[in-house]
Computed example of a mutant assay.
Amino acid sequence: MIDKRVQLKLAGLMLIMLGIIYSWPNIQNSIAAYVPIRYVQVEGAFQYIDKQDIKMKISPLVQAGYFSVDLKAIQQSVMSLPWTESIQVQRIWPDRLKLRIYEQKPVIRWQGHSLLNERGEVFKPVNIDRFQSLPVLYAPDEQRQQLLQVMYGLGVSLQDQGLYLAEFSVNERQSWLVSMENGLTIQLGRHQPLEKFSQLIKALIVSGGELVNKMMYVDMRYPNGYAVRWRENEKIDW
């Protein structure tokens, strides 16, 4: 049999534990009040993210205090900024939060209204008009990442010939159309477009830069050659 004094002690201990459990929210708030977050350290190389936007996002969340602050909520809040690619959040004793933020790096415009990063992920900042100098990709969404890699390859090959890619379009029928900054448009079609492009590059090398600059439109869809439309008022010497 358990001694009555032991029973009383156990009962008292249980009452104390129940009291702590019942009052834990108040205790937690008290701890948070005594251990506030005094500093938020933000790290990252920012070209487009405004630190004031970060402050507005996290200020209400850090009021919870060092122990109670919801790190996941802070991550989600900062990730809602369109220029945030990823974020790491950690507590640093005794009163600091450290945020390491990685910014999106736009490589091309997507469908004319969004941007793609180097992994082919879509993001849409408020104003993309300042990125008109980036080439644009029009294509079915499910082919976005694959065609981004193709676009890289096309761009490098064209730059070797002094041409700069402005637009790469693949329609629902898988027909490829490539446009340059100088206004030259190349129709590659949907049958073996990469092979057609390789043939085009060989033809451009043979033609020389001066003749290429006189071209307005090249149609590579012919089985045994290609057709060229020349710019107006251009004299062609063969």
Results as ranks from 00 to 15, higher is better:
198 S>I: 07
49 I>M: 06
3 D>F: 10
179 S>R: 15
179 S>Y: 06
65 G>V: 04
137 L>A: 02
68 S>C: 05
124 K>P: 05
179 S>V: 06
145 Q>K: 12
231 R>P: 09
7 Q>S: 09
9 K>I: 10
145 Q>C: 02
174 Q>N: 15
75 Q>F: 00
233 N>Q: 08
157 S>C: 12
125 P>R: 08
181 E>N: 10
104 Q>D: 07
35 V>S: 14
219 D>C: 08
172 E>Y: 05
95 D>Y: 06
84 T>S: 13
172 E>N: 10
53 D>Q: 12
124 K>T: 14
82 P>Q: 03
78 V>K: 00
153 G>M: 04
178 V>R: 07
119 R>S: 10
193 P>Q: 06
21 I>T: 13
92 I>S: 10
176 W>E: 02
86 S>E: 07
137 L>H: 03
180 M>Q: 02
231 R>N: 12
177 L>F: 10
177 L>D: 09
151 M>H: 02
154 L>T: 03
91 R>Q: 03
16 I>W: 02
96 R>S: 05
186 I>N: 01
193 P>H: 04
147 L>S: 04
115 L>G: 03
85 E>R: 12
158 L>V: 03
105 K>D: 11
23 S>I: 11
122 V>C: 10
125 P>Y: 09
62 V>W: 00
73 A>L: 04
18 L>T: 09
60 P>V: 10
55 K>Y: 13
205 I>S: 14
126 V>R: 13
58 I>H: 08
35 V>D: 07
57 K>G: 07
74 I>L: 02
70 D>P: 01
187 Q>G: 05
94 P>T: 08
169 S>G: 11
193 P>S: 07
49 I>V: 03
212 V>M: 08
162 G>I: 02
201 I>L: 05
94 P>N: 10
28 Q>S: 15
212 V>F: 09
10 L>H: 10
27 I>L: 12
142 E>L: 09
53 D>N: 12
82 P>W: 01
101 I>L: 04
81 L>I: 05
44 G>K: 06
135 P>E: 00
196 K>I: 08
106 P>M: 07
109 R>C: 07
129 D>E: 13
23 S>D: 14
138 Y>F: 07
87 I>A: 03
11 A>I: 12
38 R>I: 12
62 V>L: 00
12 G>A: 01
19 G>D: 05
85 E>S: 08
93 W>K: 03
40 V>F: 03
127 N>A: 09
53 D>P: 01
104 Q>T: 00
25 P>I: 04
127 N>F: 05
171 N>G: 03
50 D>Q: 13
78 V>Y: 00
104 Q>A: 06
39 Y>V: 14
85 E>V: 02
161 Q>V: 06
127 N>C: 09
165 L>K: 06
227 A>V: 15
44 G>I: 04
